[in-house]
């Protein structure tokens, strides 16, 4: 279980997170929605330790992540970055098997390659792409490779940062289905940040809306459409009028 308690973060004079409280139960899929620049990615990076929060606490299974042993802590996570963040200088299979080729999860090269090819198959890519470089792939294929890399070491918790941004609706649907299938299949805890309401409905068990640095609303995805919260209603229906200013 991930517990976020009163997390605050400012960059210079700009306060991004003003006291975020959120709990994500093990084995569930939480999707965080919110406008651009509301701090969704910052929150995710705070959990991973990529950004140090100014205040508050983040607990993973009751243990403060700031005091956790880094390698063991990060080994529990997989992450799909918005742009894929694949390493240009490595082939596709080396990207997927990155964690399996070094560090304490290191395996023999042949075994790591085999696992990478199996994960590529799992995300719908043929073994032919294994020896290509990321620059030789389309945007959708890069996202799939990123997804394969995120799941390669069978993590307990997977983060997805804008998984469908920049993809056509069909490819976005394919990625959404893959994420849902993989999360259910692995029994992983998932946290996704997105603007894409189709993704929300496809991926989420629970939804949280981040606005002005705090969680404005949170609840099961089934209750999202019926909630009277004006912020959620404006966001999910994409209305220009409402409590959320269109100019931020």
């Amino acid at each position: 279980m991930i517990e976020i308690k009163g997390v605050t973060k400012a960059f210079g004079p700009k306060t991004v997170l003003r006291g975020v409280d959120l709990t994500i139960a093990s084995g569930t899929s939480m999707v965080i929605i919110g406008g651009s620049g509301t701090g969704k990615s910052v929150l995710l990076k705070c959990i991973l330790g990529l950004v140090r929060p100014d205040g508050g606490a983040i607990l993973l299974d009751g243990q403060d992540v700031a005091r956790a042993e880094r390698d063991a802590f990060l080994a529990r996570f997989g992450m799909l970055f918005q742009g894929g963040a694949l390493f240009d200088s490595l082939t596709v299979w080396e990207n997927v098997a990155f964690r399996l080729l070094r560090g304490f999860q290191k395996r023999p090269k042949a075994e790591a390659r085999e696992i990478a090819i199996e994960k590529l198959r799992r995300v719908g890519l043929s073994p032919d792409v294994a020896d290509l470089y990321p620059a030789e792939l389309s945007g959708g294929m890069q996202k799939r490779v990123g997804l394969a890399r995120a799941i390669a070491a069978a993590p307990e918790i997977i983060f997805f940062d804008e998984p469908t941004t920049g993809l056509d609706p069909i490819m976005a649907g394919v990625i959404n289905d893959l994420i849902r299938e993989i999360v259910v299949e692995m029994g992983a805890t998932a946290m996704t940040i997105t603007h894409d309401m189709t993704s929300v409905r496809a991926i989420a068990d629970h939804v949280a809306m981040l606005h002005e640095g705090v969680i404005q609303w949170t609840g099961p995805v089934a209750e999202m459409d019926a909630t009277p919260d004006p912020y959620v209603q404006q966001f999910i229906h994409g209305r220009a009028e409402g409590p959320i200013s269109a100019v931020r």
């Binding site: 991973l48 390698d71 990060l74 996570f77 992450m79 970055f81 963040a85 694949l86 990155f98 560090g103």
Partner: peptide, 17 residues
Amino acid sequence: GTMKVTEQIDALVTLST
């Protein structure tokens, strides 16, 4: 620099490197 702006350096951290 390109690795930084494309989040490849963040990705390295998440991969325990």
